[in-house]
């Protein structure tokens, strides 16, 4: 009880610190710390699946993405330059009033919730046997609410397309070949195979314990980020069609299955006898695509292709 209260207060304090911090680098570090604490909160709430995703994607990969974005910002951009502008006293007052209104509305909504709200967990538990897996989170994500996951994966792909199309506006030259740092290189060679193994384990474990495609994909992406940081670049022969195939493998697998199930007029309703196999297959493709997409987001620009422009 005391621990939870302390955790909540710490979370609020960190959130305030990172929002009010003028140094962008410091704000990113605080954001990562916030993500780690948030993961502990999820563990305390008995949601290890969300905690894993929060640590891998929320703290780890988003932190790396923010850092790479910060590195691309112009250096002469003074942080907090908006704070010195004189604003009329009416603006902060109006904002405070509006925020208060929203907060009281949310508070009222929370207050009027029933104390014991089982939600749909009972129905999930009752139908778990038909889902093909024994982890209820995986059952919901991949079977009962498969179309949500389909849309999430497509959103990730759209984000990458957005980054790529923005980046073609100013063609940044590919990074020059640097002599690789020996320690970083050795670390990468030790860790990348291990990360691939962990990703495979998380994918397999997702059927009956916390884990799954998103967590495994994030671990794969971490391997990609490590490779990119160590100076490794995608061979130009792979940057064209093979990369694009890897990016769309997950969505295509999902959409194919959706189309096949639609033949029976039941969208993404998996047949009970093959459900476990289908979920594993779907998750494998999804993990692959999620990993490649997240790593490509970290790179932040279209990789150089053979013969073509970047």
């Amino acid at each position: 009880m005391l621990f939870d209260a302390l955790l909540g207060l710490l979370l609020l304090g960190l959130a305030w610190l990172l929002l009010s911090c003028r140094d962008l680098f410091k704000a990113i570090v605080l954001f990562v710390a916030f993500g780690l604490l948030m993961a502990i909160v999820w563990v305390r709430l008995d949601a290890p699946d969300v905690a894993l995703a929060e640590v891998a994607i929320g703290a780890g990969l988003t932190g790396a993405l923010l850092m790479s974005a910060l590195a691309k910002l112009p250096v002469d951009n003074p942080p907090g330059r908006y704070s010195n502008e004189k604003t009329h006293w009416l603006l902060p007052l109006t904002l405070a009033l509006m925020l208060l209104l929203v907060a009281s509305g949310l508070g009222y909504a929370l207050w009027s919730l029933p104390v014991i709200a089982p939600g749909l967990s009972g129905e999930v538990a009752a139908n778990l046997e038909q889902s093909g897996v024994s982890n209820p989170v995986t059952a919901v994500l991949l079977n009962f609410r498969g179309y949500d996951t389909l849309l999430e994966i497509v959103v990730l792909l759209l984000a990458l397309l957005g980054v790529w199309s923005l980046n073609s506006l100013d063609a940044t030259p590919a990074t020059a070949e640097k002599p690789a740092n020996l320690v970083l290189d050795t670390l990468m060679r030790l860790l990348v195979p291990l990360l691939i193994l962990v990703a495979a384990y998380l994918l397999w474990a997702g059927a009956n314990s916390p884990g799954g495609a998103f967590q495994a994909g994030a671990v794969l992406a971490a391997a990609g980020v490590l490779l990119l940081l160590a100076g490794w670049r995608l061979p130009t022969a792979l940057a064209g069609l093979p990369l694009r195939l890897a990016l769309v493998a997950g969505p295509v697998a999902f959409i194919t299955l959706a189309a096949l199930t639609l033949l029976n007029a039941r969208l993404l309703e998996l047949p009970v006898e093959h459900a476990g196999m289908l979920i594993l297959l779907l998750e494998t493709f999804a993990m692959f695509s999620i990993g490649v997409t997240l790593a490509a987001l970290f790179l932040g620009q279209r990789p150089q292709e053979r013969g073509g422009s970047a």
Partner: peptide
Amino acid sequence: GLVLLAGASVAYLIAN
């Protein structure tokens, strides 16, 4: 073991 490996390597990288 992983933390040892990462800690030692990252400390070297930062100092370097």
